[in-house]
Nucleic acid binder design. Structure first.
Lengths: 68, 68
DNA sequence: TTATTATGTTAATTATATCTAACATATACT
DNA sequence: AGTATATGTTAGATATAATTAACATAATAA
């Protein structure tokens, strides 16, 4: 799964830690999400999307291999 | 968090078990999702949305209290 | 150089989504 | 009446998301 978190975070001039604080998670969690290292909960995905003023479907890009 | 799973599932004339089989999870998991009993992973949310030919943002409706 | 800031990454722990199995209930059909 | 189907719900086990803490690296600034 790919994500546009890093791109949008840069647009708002936020560090991983800034975004983590706004969302209410750890910096590492944001880092792992950006790297596609894990599959977040829907709630977390929603919070990140809302913080970056976008939608879940815009923020996370699924590929066929993600369906397995 | 509210969801339109039940509504869309009815539109496609699928039982919980039918949808579960298509998505690759247990029937109970679909039941719990419909009842808002838990917060699915993004991947599961995506699979359900895709199976019901909709988007995550259309399928799951967040409220302010879901952000806590 | 040294110090600071932002990010990467690992390992161990905790929290929770999902599975599994079982049983209950309600509805519809014969 | 019975049987079958669809859903509700519970409890325990398993998988994994997320935390915590620590240390590494790269870039930038003093």
């Amino acid at each position: 799964m790919k994500t546009r978190i890093k791109e949008l975070r840069a647009r708002y001039d936020l560090t991983q830690e800034d975004l983590a604080n706004k969302v209410g998670v750890r910096r590492e969690t944001i880092g792992f999400l950006e790297k596609g290292k894990y599959n977040p909960s829907l709630k977390l995905a929603y919070k990140v999307a809302k913080t970056l003023e976008t939608t879940i479907d815009e923020l996370f890009i699924f590929e066929e291999t993600d369906l397995e």
